[in-house]
Amino acid sequence: MLSRRTMLIVTGGAGAAGLVGVGSAKAVTRVTSTGEASLTAQEFRLIAAMAEGIIPKTDTPGAIGAGVPEFFRTIFNDWFLKDEQIAFRASLKAYDDEAKLRFTKTFLRCTAAQQSELLNDWDKKSANMFARPPHPFGQFKKLTIHGYYTSQVGLELELKATMDAAQNDPNGPLIQPVSLF
């Protein structure tokens, strides 16, 4: 059973993503400051499904519950440079194209097992550090992880990290070279 604090984090601190799931995908498409259109609802749902496949719900919320799709939206709309937006959008299309090629349906319509198979394949391909250009899944996975573990859900529910830990760590106060990020 979720504690009150946990409930607050899941339902409030993560931007209500835990309750609405990918419902916010219906947000109106707009033009970002680079001139590129923002993510479509279809793209947003694909991102959510892929991110949840990387970090699924267990005894703690997964990527969707932690607001990772919304983090992707922020990164796409306001952080990526124009050429990165174009490349990212193309990679989303490529993921779906590969799903259609292998399973004759989009990634979202694939079964959980098929989605897992695709994600695992892309993960293996992106592990090749010498590939040029690098497989785009490496970036997708990195942003998923960053979005998850810097969220309130990721930090406080999944990792149980608190500021007091540095002072009270029985192993001595660690230096944390990456600081909070």
């Binding site: 930090l155 990792l159 149980k160 990290a161 608190t162 500021m163 830990a165 540095a166 760590d169 192993n171 106060p173 660690l174 230096i175 944390q176 600081s179 909070l180």
Partner: peptide
């Protein structure tokens, strides 16, 4: 080394 709690912050200095 040992498993440690995840920390948020840390000691200044090296």
């Amino acid at each position: 080394g040992p498993q440690t709690p995840h920390i948020w912050g840390g000691r200044p200095g090296v």
